[in-house]
Structure formats: C-alpha cells, structure tokens
Amino acid sequence: MTRIVITGATGAIGQALATGYARPGNRLVLHGRQHEVLESLAADCRRTGAEVECSSVDLGDDEALFAWLASLCDPAPPEIVIINAGININIGEDGSGEQWEDASRLLEINLRVPMAMGNFLGKRMRAAGRGQLVLMSSLAAYHGLPVTPSYSASKAGVKAYGEALRGWLAPHGVGVTVVMPGYVSSKMCHEMPGPKPFLWQPERAARVISRGIEKDRARISFPFPLDFGCWWLAVLPAAISQHLVKWFGYHIDPDDGAKR
C-alpha cells in the first residue's frame, strides 16, 4: 500500500492530483480547508479504488501540525508527501499595497508551513531511508511580480528551501521535488492580477507533476515557453527584467488604477 499525502487537496491542482492517484493500492491522506469539497473528493477517490483519509488540521498551529505529522509517520513515514496548500494576495485594485496582516498569513501558509513539514518529515524519511517530498513553488520564484510581492517572495523561498532539502536528503535515499507551475486554471489563479499566458487546465498539470514525481525530478516547471521566459528574467540584468515585467503587463496603470 502506497501512502500519499496531499495538502491543499481542495484546490484545483490538489483535486486533480488526488484524482490521478486514486486507484487500488494507494492510500490517500487528503488535507483541505473546504470540508464539503474535501468529502466529495474523498468519495470520488474511494469510488475508483483508493483508500482515503481526510484531515482539516490547522497547518498554522505548530502543535496540531506536528501531532498530525507524527501520526502519519507511525509506524513509518508516507511514501509521497505533496505540500501543496497555498494562498495569494495582491497590491489591490488601486495599487495601494498589501495589508501586512494578509501578507503575514500568506507567508505562514506558503513558506513557514512547507518548511515545518519539510523539517519534520525530512528527518523521519532520512531515518527510514526512503520517501518523496514535493514542494509547490511557482514560476514567480524566478523573478518577483510587482502585483504580488509577498506571493512571489514565498514561492522563491519554497524553491530555495526545496533545493537545499534535496541536497541534504538525496544521499540518504529521500527524493525532493520542487514544482514550479505557470498559470493553472483555478479560483486563485483567476483572482490574480495581470495576464495569464499559456494557461493550463489542472488535470494536465497534475499529469506532468505525477510523472515528474515518479522520476524523482529535482524540478518540475511548466509550460515551457513561460518557464523559459521567466528563467531569463532571473539571469538578465535587473533593470532589463523589471522593464520586461512591466511591458508584459504586470503593473498598475497610474492613470486609472486598472490592472493590465
């Protein structure tokens, strides 16, 4: 029995991943904040042959989080843990800036929680000599977008942390994969300001991610044209990259406050 843990399972990518892994021989542990969506997803996964356990533990509560993770590692850690939960905020319709309370919560969920889970599970997978940690970053990790500064920062942090974890854990038989999606159709995606080039459906993204996990790829980034372009933003001189980001439409028009 292969145990697969997915946080953020009620989001678009999370649901598609859960559905893709829902087959006989797999035991899914699905975590999500939307109770009704979670229960419906679990029922769908059970119908296709998977065993399913649900959780809505508060990931931001260290005591509750670590107690849950400890239970998942008894008697042995799961084979695959996909740390997918995340939120997004932006600088607002008028470009006035993010609210710090919102930014602080975002950093907790998007960065602190993946680090806490990676730290806890990495040690136990290392001791067991097996396991796969999957951290959800973003192509925004290559170069911060001015309309979503905190989100960009959190995903850059996840990218760096996942890369470091892989270097630490790989010699001990533990894989770490950093996923860097572009735009994947979801409520969160469509609420983000700015254009959405090369938009993928979540099912397509889930197929690419699961294939990459199976191959223990260090990085899974897509779609290629956007990935290639964002990579260049990271290596070009900052002044050129910032000009390109503005030219591509990721800014607030000072004349009317409209998102472009």
Rank of each mutant, 00 (worst) to 15 (best):
M180P: 00
R130A: 02
A238S: 06
L199D: 09
I209P: 01
P237V: 04
L72R: 04
P149R: 02
V147T: 13
L139C: 06
Y142C: 06
W200N: 05
S186G: 09
W247D: 04
W247N: 07
R112C: 00
V113R: 03
A85H: 04
L236P: 14
S150W: 11
G11A: 00
G14W: 13
I89S: 13
W68S: 04
L135E: 03
S154G: 11
V208P: 01
M136L: 14
W100D: 11
A103P: 08
M180F: 05
G8C: 05
L121S: 05
E203L: 09
G131Q: 02
V57Y: 11
L135Q: 12
L165T: 12
C45N: 10
A50R: 06
P223M: 05
F222A: 09
W232G: 07
V245G: 05
D44W: 03
R47A: 08
G167I: 09
D62A: 02
I213V: 15
V174C: 11
A64L: 12
T177Q: 14
A43F: 03
M188R: 03
H31G: 05
Y183A: 02
L226W: 11
N110G: 09
S137H: 10
L226Q: 08
V179A: 15
V235N: 13
P197T: 12
R105N: 12
R112P: 05
A239C: 02
V208E: 14
S56K: 11
G25R: 08
C189E: 15
L106M: 10
L106C: 06
L121P: 00
R23C: 03
R124P: 03
E36Y: 10
D255W: 12
D253A: 09
K259I: 14
P181H: 05
P171M: 10
F248A: 14
S40R: 13
L59K: 02
D94A: 13
E191N: 15
D253I: 12
E53T: 07
H243P: 00
M188G: 06
A238C: 01
L38D: 03
L65M: 07
Q242H: 11
L244G: 01
P75R: 06
V178M: 10
D62M: 00
H31L: 06
M117Y: 07
P78N: 01
G131F: 04
G257P: 15
K123Y: 09
P78K: 00
R219Y: 05
V113S: 02
F222R: 12
G14T: 03
A85M: 08
L233T: 06
K215I: 01
R46Y: 06
S185C: 04
K259T: 15
W232F: 14
E39A: 08
I209K: 15
I220A: 13
I109E: 05
N119F: 08
W100Y: 12
N26A: 02
S152T: 07
P171Q: 09
G212E: 03
V57Q: 08
D44T: 05
G212N: 06
Q132M: 07
A127E: 11
W200E: 08
S154W: 07
S150A: 12
I87R: 14
S55M: 02
E79I: 00
E98R: 13
K155A: 01
K155E: 01
S71R: 15
L135V: 09
M1E: 08
L244W: 12
Q132P: 11
D94V: 03
Y250C: 07
F198Y: 14
L121D: 02
L165S: 10
E53N: 08
V208H: 15
P254D: 00
L111S: 06
T7A: 03
H172T: 05
